[in-house]
């Protein structure tokens, strides 16, 4: 039983549990992707703590509190600070926060909520705040993964409610 099962309400041995296992590449592939964006080997100086905090924040904006709590726990294990906990909770940054963090947060919020509005200027803002190309891609993949995961969970949970 993995995080997707748990958050979708899928119990081991249930019909949907078995159906998911008919697609092992989806099940294992999702967990492998989770590792590469939340706890990567090469993190390009985007720490596991910041990644967990951003994931919790995005899950909250997506309306999935249970998913957000999973990432709160990951953040607690990685070592939460008041700043990171504030990010995870979905709040505004304190005034003294640096532009690097401020721009990352703005981007995560924008791409989660209204990706259709994104333009070149948003990538230029990341560059201006000092993000390297690997950091821009790593951040983009993290944002996109959480958006993917939330949708899989919501879809499977709804499927679990029908006959």
């Amino acid at each position: 039983m993995d995080q997707i099962d748990r958050l979708s309400g899928i119990a081991p041995g249930s019909e949907l549990y078995d159906i998911r296992r008919q697609r092992p590449d989806f099940v294992d592939g999702t967990e492998l992707c989770r590792q590469t964006v939340l706890t990567p080997t090469h993190g390009f100086d985007l720490g596991h703590d910041l990644r967990a905090a951003l994931a919790a924040r995005m899950a909250r904006f997506l309306g999935h509190e249970e998913l957000a709590k999973t990432y709160d726990e990951m953040l607690a294990q990685a070592g939460a600070t008041p700043l990171l906990s504030g990010i995870a909770a979905g709040g505004e940054l304190p005034a003294e926060a640096d532009s690097f963090l401020r721009t990352i947060l703005r981007h995560a919020d924008l791409v989660t909520k209204t990706p259709r509005e994104n333009t070149k200027a948003d990538i230029e803002a990341l560059e201006a705040a000092g993000l390297s190309n690997p950091q821009i891609i790593a951040l983009s993949e993290l944002i996109a993964f959480v958006n993917f995961e939330a949708r899989v969970i919501v879809g499977l949970a709804a499927l679990g409610e029908v006959a």
Binding site: I123, A144, F148, R151, V152, L156, L159
Partner: peptide
């Protein structure tokens, strides 16, 4: 389900829409 889709079909559909929630967030923003 009423239109004849099996639960396994719906699992596939969920994933195909969701993976584009991912792909679009790369391609359209980058």
């Amino acid at each position: 389900r009423d239109h004849g889709m099996s639960k396994a079909d719906i699992v596939d559909l969920i994933h195909s829409a969701a993976i584009f929630g991912w792909a679009n967030r790369l391609m359209h923003t980058l």
